[in-house]
Design a protein around this nucleic acid. Sequence first.
DNA 1: TCAATAGTTTAGAATAATTCTAAACCACTT
DNA 2: AAGTGGTTTAGAATTATTCTAAACTATTGA
Lengths: 141, 141
Amino acid sequence: MKREMVERPYKEVVDVLKRCGLRPTRQRMALAKLLRDAGDCHLTAEELHARAADAGHRISLATIYNALHQFTEAGLVREIVVDSGCSYFDTNVSDHHHFFFEDRRELKDIDHGDVVISAVPEPPEGATVERVDVVIRVRSS
Amino acid sequence: MKREMVERPYKEVVDVLKRCGLRPTRQRMALAKLLRDAGDCHLTAEELHARAADAGHRISLATIYNALHQFTEAGLVREIVVDSGCSYFDTNVSDHHHFFFEDRRELKDIDHGDVVISAVPEPPEGATVERVDVVIRVRSS
DNA sequence: TCAATAGTTTAGAATAATTCTAAACCACTT
DNA sequence: AAGTGGTTTAGAATTATTCTAAACTATTGA
Ligand SMILES: [Mn+2]
Ligand SMILES: [Mn+2]
Ligand SMILES: [Zn+2]
Ligand SMILES: [Zn+2]
């Protein structure tokens, strides 16, 4: 019973990982749980690494990168490129756009529906639209 | 007269540079001219470096980066971040958006007006909108 | 015309994010 | 319990970019 209270929260992430065809290893379970419990946010690999460390998990950066890419592939997180120099991983995988605070280098979600794109051009022949990213770059002033 | 035919094209870029408060050095003139003559396109620092070399200019990469940042500051080019790992510099500084071909890692302009954003949210208090970037990510398939 | 000055260029080292390597490790099957 | 094949890891490698400090040059005004 003591054991169960601690272990239960893992059940879900284990299932998610299995559904994605990823072995539920110690590291992937820890990371998947951290990401799920983090709520909607935008993390760099380094930040996730730090959070894992804070939670008592000693996971190599290589593994963090591996997991983030696998999770991206599986649709558990979404990679956002706004800053030449580092990638952000978004735990909110629903369709939404972003403010980017250039001075703080931070992303903030824009509620779906607050940006309306009323005309999107056809992609060129043989190309298929993967995603439409809208980033509103702002500076404090 | 022989001389003039070769030199005249530089007159404009010299003026542009002066207007921007940048000394018209040999390197900056060469780069400004290359960029102006390139037509609308999206270049990486390396690509511009290669074009300079092709045109017979031996300019260090550090200078390419310096110039591109100064030109960006001055509004002569626009920096676009779509690809974690490298920046693109757009010689088309008019208001427009982009397709990004993820496999080729190439940008393509979308005519102004082909993307209509009919609702843009207010930025948070104290933040001022710098720019709205729309990137339509496509893959060939 | 010629310094003096301040801005510019440069090679090469340094940095930072990310990827690679190859050996140790461990999840899952049998 | 052993075999297997995927996984993790430390550390080296890679890549784009920035930094450093010395050499260079555009500009100015004597
Ligand atoms: Mn970062
Ligand atoms: Mn590149
Ligand atoms: Zn988001
Ligand atoms: Zn463009």
